[in-house]
């Protein structure tokens, strides 16, 4: 590719563990290739060299928005970027920090946990990027899967849209030749969750926790039914869904109520 034609790319992070950007950095075999194939304008975890004024072709943004000051910062990134991508589950759906967003108002929840006043930033309810700016694509995962990132990174370099697996974790789980945990009535979120992780948890005999966010055609009523029939209470199952599905939970559960 022509040096002149390299796309300008920035990596940014808000509230989260930086696990998504670290996933990119930790794949050393590919790090140079990522650097070679684009002009990296900003990547605070990897380089101190950055240009905050340049316009970007693509901004990868990790983390959710949990402080008022971040909203403005996010808007600035949006303004200078042709394509903005929510990287990871926090940026896509709100992340773990959105888990209790259904329980009363934010300030009372916040004050009960942190009774001492914060002065650095003004905290607000955790929300995904989409709540504040237009997000062109989502690459979920907690953390993201590097192969899935690379697949889409190269697509973006070629001006192709992001493409995510259009199937649930169970498909990859079977490719790994695992026995289904639901058969043992272990509440595995595999059939509710978008694939992309190579079924990492079930492959280690642990139930899927849904960290890639909801699969678009999930059948929640049937999943609940099969587990409730085995005396797992709804509350417990709901909690599992809330853990990673973030702002999507409301939508998913409301469909359930309509059905009933």
């Amino acid at each position: 590719m022509d040096k002149e034609k390299k796309l300008k790319i920035g990596f940014y992070e808000f509230s989260g563990c930086a696990g998504d950007l670290l996933t990119i950095i930790h794949n050393e075999d590919y790090l140079l290739k990522v650097w070679n194939s684009a002009e990296i304008i900003s990547f605070r975890l990897a380089t101190s060299k950055r240009d905050e004024k340049a316009n970007l072709d693509i901004a990868f943004v990790e983390g959710s928005i949990t402080a008022e000051e971040q909203i403005e910062e996010l808007r600035k990134i949006r303004e200078k970027s042709r394509i903005l991508i929510a990287l990871g589950t926090c940026a896509s759906f709100g992340g773990l920090q959105s888990m209790y967003s259904h329980l009363g108002d934010f300030s009372s929840r916040f004050n009960s946990i942190y009774p001492h006043k914060f002065t650095i930033l003004k905290p607000i309810e955790s929300k995904p990027l989409e709540s504040y700016v237009k997000v062109d694509y989502f690459i979920p995962g907690c953390p993201i899967d590097f192969k899935l990132f690379l697949f889409n990174f190269t697509r973006l370099l070629r001006n192709l849209p992001v493409e995510l697996p259009s199937y649930p974790v169970c498909i990859e789980c079977k490719w790994q030749e695992n026995n289904c945990l639901l058969l043992k009535k272990i509440p595995c979120l595999g059939p509710l969750t978008r694939a992309g992780c190579q079924a990492r948890c079930p492959t280690h005999n642990l139930p899927c926790v849904g960290c890639f966010g909801p699969y678009e055609d999930l059948n929640l009523p049937s999943w609940l039914k099969t587990l409730q029939e085995n005396n797992i209470p709804f509350k417990e199952l709901e909690k599992k869904i809330r853990m990673f599905f973030g702002v999507k939970v409301k939508e998913i559960l409301s469909k359930l109520k309509n059905k009933k």
Partner: peptide, 13 residues
């Protein structure tokens, strides 16, 4: 149809 999880396991195995 309502029972099916659309998980695709049947096709894989």
């Amino acid at each position: 149809g309502e029972r099916c999880l659309s998980c695709g396991t049947c096709s894989m195995i």
